[in-house]
């Protein structure tokens, strides 16, 4: 295998191939980043919605519950297909990236909503009550009291999810999004050995996800030592 890779390498290492892989890496990174960042924001909004009490917001709470429960249970690929065909049905020519981006955001939002809600619930009820008796609004309570305490609980599973999530974006290749896995297949089809094609892709995936995991560990360590976030 090794001699084969060495033999193939000169043909493989072209400017064109590198640009191709770099663009695909950008796509994977873009989808992952969108999913993680927008997903966190949506997850936060969903989690906040679900801890509201007002009877007026009941329909919204039910909607948030349905959203999280449905998209957490549906396989990523199915959501992706669903988005793909839903967008197709609109008749507009919507770029595949947008379709993939919407799907990953929806999925990440649903998952992170549960992780964040778990974090909220980990904060003792008496913190909510103390804030309520001092006239904190729900958003103030969450911003000033709950989130700073919930981070510790939320971070490890959230970063675990982010890392998993980067891998899941590979499924976007199924609807034709040119991301890393797709490129691996293309290179393989062009005649390069699977070992080389997917070996390179593997390294790029690692290069994307490892720093993220390190960041997670770093943040956790900082939170653990920080006075502000000890419970």
């Amino acid at each position: 295998m090794w001699s084969q890779i060495v033999e193939e390498w000169p043909r493989f290492a072209t400017y064109y191939n590198f640009i191709f892989i770099a663009k695909a890496a950008g796509m994977t990174l873009g989808l992952s980043a969108l999913g993680c960042i927008l997903g966190t924001l949506i997850g936060l909004a969903l989690a906040v919605t679900r801890v509201t009490r007002s009877p007026w917001l009941r329909p919204l709470r039910i909607l948030a519950l349905l959203f999280t429960e449905v998209f957490r249970r549906v396989p990523f690929l199915v959501t992706l297909m669903l988005c793909f065909f839903a967008f197709q049905a609109t008749g507009f020519d919507i770029p595949l990236f947008v379709v993939a981006a919407v799907s990953v955001t929806v999925i990440a939002g649903a998952f992170l909503a549960e992780i964040i809600r778990g974090g909220f619930r980990s904060v003792h009820q008496n913190q909510w009550e103390a804030a309520a008796t001092m006239n904190f609004s729900l958003l103030d309570t969450i911003r000033l009291v709950i989130l700073p305490q919930a981070w510790r609980i939320v971070l490890p599973p959230a970063f675990g999810y982010f890392v998993m999530f980067i891998k899941d974006t590979a499924l976007a290749s199924q609807i034709g999004v040119i991301e890393l896995t797709y490129v691996g297949k293309v290179l393989n089809n062009k005649g390069f050995s699977a070992a080389l094609s997917f070996g390179v892709i593997l390294i790029v995936y690692f290069a994307i996800s490892y720093p993220l995991a390190r960041l997670g560990t770093l943040l956790e360590a900082r939170l653990a030592s920080s006075r502000h976030h000890r419970a």
Partner: peptide, 24 residues
């Protein structure tokens, strides 16, 4: 409260000041 219910993420001074400053 019996269990004090101080905000665990805030210093003593911040616990006392947070509501008057941020809410009032």
């Amino acid at each position: 409260f019996q269990q004090y219910n101080l905000f665990q993420n805030m210093s003593v001074l911040e616990n006392v000041c947070v509501a008057p400053v941020k809410i009032k």
